[in-house]
Nucleic acid binder design. Structure first.
Lengths: 135, 135
DNA sequence: ATTGACCTTATAGTAGCTTTATAGTTTTAA
DNA sequence: TTAAAACTATAAAGCTACTATAAGGTCAAT
């Protein structure tokens, strides 16, 4: 299987595959005589794993960590669960922060309507005056 | 006022101030004979404005846009409000996406406990099997 | 023989800084 | 007075996770 086929199979761009290889997330495949990369099913599975992790919002470093656990399958999976727990609490704090931000933005927006000049704009005044909650 | 004092006043690093200047967000200040930048209160206000916008999650490009409106204060402020509306809906869709992600992560986490080996880890199996909701 | 589709590497661009390197200036303490 | 500490300057690289571009080699079909 060449790089283009693998890319289409998993739904990524060829450059992304080369990038993962360069980052050490995907093992370097064998090469044909002409230098073309040749992939096996194992590569396909590994690439799909990476992509699913990315969809879950894991960083490449975290994926790397997960792979290192997979390479040593007889240790307890405590660290895997801890990694996920950390990620969940990270996502939750992002949500909390964004909700607070939304509230702030909505109240800022409410301080103006469209019938004013920039000079009298409630939104710009609101930002400029700096009566904002910290963080 | 020199760059270090301004930085301390507003709570940013000196490099950030130079960076904003380079990006055209902060007007180039006068220089002393030795080349040191000399800032006025206007610079302080402008920098504080930038920082508040950043806290609100606006991009440097959006801040630039807001500044261009401020520089022409007699047009209607429709565009300012539109920019904020766009930003609010952007934040809202981020929240929605993160909430869906959280749900997915929590259900994945529920498929394992800490008393297994990596080989039998429900979390890793869940990711590998790929029974994930798209997007 | 040449077009088109595929592959290769290397390099730069994205956002918003932060870090590092190297060097000149000013202030302060010995 | 001098030497160290603290400040300033510029330029360039690093961060994340790719994406895009450039310049070129390979292969099948026309």
């Amino acid at each position: 299987m060449r790089i283009g086929q693998l890319a289409q199979l998993v739904g990524v761009e060829t450059q992304t595959i080369r990038f993962y290889e360069q980052q050490g997330l995907l093992p370097p495949p064998d090469r044909q005589d002409n230098g073309y990369r040749v992939y096996t099913e194992k590569h396909g599975e590994r690439l799909a794993f990476i992509r699913r992790c990315r969809i879950l919002g894991l960083s490449l470093a975290e994926i790397h960590e997960l792979q290192s656990y997979q390479d040593d399958p007889h240790q307890p999976c405590t660290a895997v669960n801890a990694l996920l727990d950390d990620h969940i609490s990270h996502v939750r704090s992002q949500i909390t922060a964004l909700q607070a931000l939304e509230k702030q933005l909505v109240s800022l927006r409410a301080s103006c309507n469209d019938d004013r000049e920039v000079e009298a704009c409630g939104v710009l005044a609101g930002i400029s005056e700096g009566n904002m909650h910290q963080q």
